[in-house]
Design a protein around this nucleic acid. Structure first.
Lengths: 108, 108
DNA sequence: CCGATTCATCAACGTTTGTTGATTGACAAC
DNA sequence: GTTGTCAATCAACAAACGTTGATGAATCGG
């Protein structure tokens, strides 16, 4: 069950993590399954340092996880986080019976 | 029908507009129906200039529209934009049959 | 042990974002 | 007309963000 109202700080964090094209590119790549950083580096043509930065943002927001295997870090999507985003979008829709004329409005 | 892949620039713009707590607060207020700026100012305890700034970001992203009525501007949610967000979250989910082991991977 | 590879972290920098207070324009009341 | 109100815009500033290149830690191959 989802909360009635989403915690604004959490929503902002999630949306912020998704508000960058490089990060969206990373997620798009991860849609096909787990990838190591070196993989992403090649396909996204991004400097290693830059990628590391963006992966951290995604990880801090809970959108991805990493798995260490020897020298390699493998990242993959956390589907639950995207479900959160999904739910937020639904919850933000106007309420049914949203009053066009409001009682206590300053400008009637 | 929704596109197979969302335009990244559009997605980034939409998510960016949603990545601020003040703006999320505005949208939450608008869920109940159309509101004038003066209304939002009081309820969100935000300076007029600040509110104007955030309303512009939301408007530029297509998340809200405004209606002028005499001296007042009334803002309301554009539900279609939230549907876009919803769809994006769905489209970002990992593909079914996402391969855990990848063929051309750099680190087999 | 030594060198190479993978990746995270750091410092420095420029850019973007958000805030504040002042100005301006449009409208309404008088 | 003059005055007051609503809201967009502007300039100035501070904070957050993203990029780059360098450094460092861990791992693997020779």
């Amino acid at each position: 069950m989802t909360a009635t109202t989403v915690a604004p700080a959490r929503a902002a964090q999630l949306f912020h993590a998704l508000s960058d094209e490089t990060r969206l590119g990373i997620l798009e790549m991860l849609r096909g399954g787990e990838r190591c950083v070196c993989d992403l580096q090649v396909d996204l043509d991004a400097a290693q340092s830059r990628l590391s930065f963006h992966l951290r943002v995604l990880k801090d927001a809970g959108l991805v996880t990493d798995r260490k295997d020897g020298r390699w870090s493998h990242y993959s999507i956390v589907p639950e986080a995207l479900t959160e985003v999904h739910d937020m979008a639904v919850e933000m829709q106007p309420r049914k019976r949203a009053l066009s004329i409001r009682s206590g409005s300053c400008c009637g």
